[in-house]
């Protein structure tokens, strides 16, 4: 019997445990903290002779990528394999969907193959939610759904790994000033970051970018808006750079990438305005010379490669928590 839609948060089961991970928005602070706490012991597994634990032995994880993303798919695949799951990768934009199959037909077919978990990436906002709702409505809520990025909506595991990275270097969220810089308009990562930071108690979240790349009404989320990068970076503890999403842009939102770099690229000179021990994050893939200078990307304050390593541990924690609930 399904309760989907009747409970306050479709991601939580009747015991308040995580059933799906669709978005950070609306998840209580203790659930976020528990995911971060659980990720810490998983990061140690990578140091072992055998980089695997048996939690998801015999489980089938389907990576349903309706939109290409080699890196995200790979980190989910590594995470699932380190949990001993069997992983099946489907790049659906090159298979069934091009033959006309609907999203839910695809999900039904894979569920009939005894799937235990779907990791879903889709260009349309809400696609993972639709699949979770469909599974619940058809009595198959033992299958868990992880959102690996949907449209402009959310990318919760990226947001969580960013929170894990910040906590690793800065320990206490409640004393931080955090800046998110760049193309927020097209960024599902930024939305997940904002919800994560505010839920975990960051007192000041700044968003910095050109007016054309900031969503209207973004300040209603509880962030401070800056249209001048130098002013916005002054005294911050954490700088979260966003990728300029050229492939998602239509029309004249930007003059040129050179112009963009001049105003919105993170250079050593602009980084110097932040606190001396500020850290720099980037979700990748980086456009060097567009949103970030190579001297910063390869410099001592960048924690961009540790983000990738932590991302595997965070995804292991999410999948292990879901599959056990």
């Amino acid at each position: 019997m399904s309760t989907f839609g009747r409970q306050s948060n479709p991601q939580l089961n009747s015991h308040g445990e995580l059933q799906h991970l669709l978005t950070i928005e609306g998840l209580p602070r203790d659930v976020l903290t528990r995911i971060l706490d659980t990720a810490a012991p998983f990061s140690e597994v990578a140091e072992r002779e055998v980089k695997k634990v048996p939690l998801l032995r015999g489980k089938s994880v389907f990576n349903l990528f309706f939109e290409n993303s080699t890196r995200t798919r790979t980190t989910f695949e590594i995470a699932a394999k380190r949990l001993s799951a069997d992983v099946i990768n489907l790049n659906i934009n090159t298979s069934s969907a091009s033959k006309g199959e609907t999203l839910l037909d695809t999900a039904d077919n894979l569920a009939a193959m005894q799937a235990d978990m779907f990791v879903v990436r889709h260009a349309s906002s809400g696609a993972p939610y639709l699949i979770a709702q469909h599974l619940a409505a058809t009595g198959r809520d033992h299958i868990h759904v992880v959102n690996a990025g949907d449209g402009r909506h959310a990318h919760p595991t990226q947001g969580l790994l960013d929170m894990y990275t910040i906590r690793h270097y800065k320990a206490d969220f409640t004393r931080l000033t955090v800046a998110i810089v760049g193309d927020l308009l097209h960024s599902r990562v930024a939305r997940s970051q904002i919800h994560g930071l505010l839920t975990l108690g960051v007192p000041e979240v700044r968003v910095i970018g050109p007016k054309t790349l900031l969503p209207t009404g973004v300040e209603r989320l509880g962030v401070r808006v800056f249209n001048d990068m130098r002013e916005g970076l002054r005294g911050v503890d954490v700088i979260m750079m966003l990728r300029l999403q050229n492939e998602r842009m239509q029309g004249a939102l930007l003059p040129s990438t050179q112009e963009y770099f001049k105003s919105w690229g993170l250079t050593p000179e602009k980084l110097a305005l932040a606190k001396p021990d500020a850290i720099v994050l980037h979700p990748g893939p980086m456009n060097r010379g567009v949103e970030i200078d190579s001297a910063v990307a390869d410099g001592g304050q960048a924690v961009i490669l540790p983000q990738v390593t932590f991302g595997i541990a965070v995804r292991m924690a999410v999948m292990a928590m879901l599959a056990g609930n």
Binding site: T38, V45, P54, L55, A320, G324
Partner: peptide, 16 residues
């Protein structure tokens, strides 16, 4: 916690 045989009954323990 990652090797317990009751994971499928009781889920992943908190505070691992």
């Amino acid at each position: 916690s990652f090797y317990r045989d009751d994971y499928h009954q009781r889920g992943l323990r908190a505070n691992a």
